[in-house]
Nucleic acid binder design. Structure first.
Lengths: 125, 125
DNA sequence: CACGTATATGCTATATAGGGTATATAAAGG
DNA sequence: CCTTTATATACCCTATATAGCATATACGTG
């Protein structure tokens, strides 16, 4: 469970992150707002903390958690390569290819394409 | 395994996506470039296809896979809320709080903070 | 110091994703 | 047709993340 992507794969954790984006919250507040059992909250917070998504400060018996930007920026950085992609393909080509037979068989079913005879698959070394 | 986040949690799948960002590839090409067993490639491609990350067209015996932007944009959209966050906190406050005792105990260990006596925890409802 | 509140942690059970291997399907070509 | 190439799938196995519950720890207060 090392990568940032595995961390945010969990719905409850994403919920916690989204909650913290507005302002810092104590465990109890998270517990009540998200209606999840306290041990669950604590465990997910632990994962988030160790991954650097959040940090906490102690205030009497309460632990107040707040967001940290590092790991989220990391995800953002990974996405960058794809932004370049969908910027290029301003969807012009995509639409062209899909449109003609969308719903016909969708894209979960491989799309049969008509092609000029292939140059016979070369034996691979 | 419904959410887009769970899909990209898998390292091999992220590798495939990153490979496809340059150009479309057949299963065999992916197999060789990423050095992973063919059934593994096919299985991950299936997951990616059903989640809408990629689409495929048939070309003789080959299946050519290419990237689709939808789900990636969805992730990007989720990240938006946090971009607003880390834009606000231009890290000014953050650095201030961390700096003083970074490495001291890191942020995986809750940071003890000095506080003026709290107004006594109100009984909850 | 006994008690209530707040949070963390230990333990067990369970589901499920992913790897490996073998095999099915399908298309081309001789 | 029989073989080769290309990809998909079925099956089994294992590892591990998460939920649920109980309990420990810690702090503050009367």
């Amino acid at each position: 469970m090392e990568s940032v992507f595995e961390i945010i794969a969990e719905p409850n954790r994403r919920a916690i992150l989204s909650l913290l984006v507005s302002s810092e919250q104590s465990v109890g507040e998270i517990e009540r707002r998200l209606r999840m059992p306290q041990p669950t909250v604590s465990k997910h917070l632990r994962v988030l903390r160790e991954a650097g998504f959040v940090e906490s400060t102690v205030d009497a018996q309460r632990r107040v958690y707040r967001l940290k930007s590092g790991p989220l920026k990391e995800i953002d950085a990974w996405l960058a390569q794809f932004r370049r992609f969908w910027a290029a393909h301003v969807d012009a080509l995509e639409r062209h290819l899909d449109r003609m037979d969308r719903e016909q068989h969708g894209s979960s079913t491989p799309t049969k394409i008509n092609r000029k005879k292939m140059p016979r698959p070369k034996p691979r070394r």
